[in-house]
């Protein structure tokens, strides 16, 4: 069993790496953080998800966002339209998660991501 402080320091190091990926791909980072907390640090699934949501409460993407914004790569209108739905949907989803055993749902989500990933790769590099 790792000392608590050692564990927290290691989590910081892992989170820095996840943060690079988050800024690179314009995502929050939770999608990598949740499985890594479970696989590397032995977190129980619900605890990993709750902890990931803590990390996403402060505007952690702000430095990355400013870089995109300086490059003129932000659509303000679409962003503002999506915000309220994500908040309200989050309430519904979190209640569902407390009620469900999330294993099957995670696998469905993983398969969904595989489809999205292959689609992204083919449309980027294989279709002219």
């Amino acid at each position: 069993m790792l000392d608590r402080r050692v564990k927290l320091s290691l989590i910081l190091v892992v989170a820095c790496g996840v943060g690079v990926a988050a800024g690179l791909f314009g995502v929050g980072g939770g999608v990598l953080l949740v499985p890594l907390l479970v696989l590397l640090f032995g977190y129980e699934q619900h605890l990993a998800q709750g902890t990931s949501l803590v990390a996403l409460v402060p505007p952690v993407g702000i430095l990355a966002f400013l870089n995109y914004s300086h490059a003129g790569q932000v659509s303000w209108k679409v962003g503002l339209l999506i915000m309220p739905g994500v908040f309200l949907g989050g309430l519904v989803g979190s209640r569902l998660a407390q009620a469900l055993s999330p294993r099957r749902m995670r696998r469905v989500f993983a398969l969904f991501l595989v489809v999205l990933g292959i689609w992204q790769i083919t449309s980027a590099w294989l279709i002219k």
Partner: peptide, 21 residues
């Protein structure tokens, strides 16, 4: 642990976005 992750995201995100742009 959440606070540590937030710090990592903040600084990591800066460098990641530089690469992406």
């Amino acid at each position: 642990a959440g606070v540590m992750c937030a710090l990592g995201f903040l600084f990591g995100g800066y460098f990641g976005s530089k690469i992406a742009i």
